[in-house]
């Protein structure tokens, strides 16, 4: 187990519109991304409570990616702007906790941008791989 290459658990929150749409487009074009990426549907990126992100990190995720509609395209008009603010703040708070705020990414993905979704999933996995396991995991076992 210890010798195996570190495969991070990546939690990928997707809004029900563009984010999920992007994942479906990626599927429809059979674009590949790593298996360790776990998609998770919320109605809107703006509805993604900070508590959920923290909980995901506590429960064993090594990184949390978030994708939703591009600015101006939000299905709910302004939700993604709330998300942008909330995540910016969240990163700061995580830093002060000693959890690298860069373990949380927000990247806009439109319904049609299957490739961007797959790329984000791949890049984020690589990014977290470099960072190593989440420090919260050390209290496990």
């Amino acid at each position: 187990m210890a010798d195996k290459e570190f495969t991070p658990k990546v939690f990928y929150a997707l809004c029900a519109w563009c984010g999920s749409g992007g994942s479906e487009t990626a599927g429809a074009y059979w674009l590949k991304y790593p298996e360790n990426v776990r998609p998770f549907r919320v109605m809107c990126t703006g509805a993604l409570d900070s508590a959920y992100v923290l909980r995901a990190l506590i429960e064993g995720a090594d990184g949390v990616a978030v994708s939703g509609c591009h600015p101006g395209d939000c299905h709910y008009n302004i939700g993604n702007f709330r998300a942008r603010r909330r995540i910016a703040v969240m990163k700061e708070i995580l830093n002060t906790f000693g959890i690298d705020g860069d373990r949380v990414w927000l990247r806009w993905v439109a319904h049609g941008e299957g490739k961007k979704l797959a790329d984000t999933a791949t890049e984020f996995t690589e990014h977290i791989k470099k960072k190593g396991p989440s420090p919260l995991k050390r209290w496990d076992t």
Partner: peptide, 8 residues
């Protein structure tokens, strides 16, 4: 519309 912004 059920976006959930208020809840968050």
């Amino acid at each position: 519309k059920g976006c959930g912004l208020c809840a968050a």
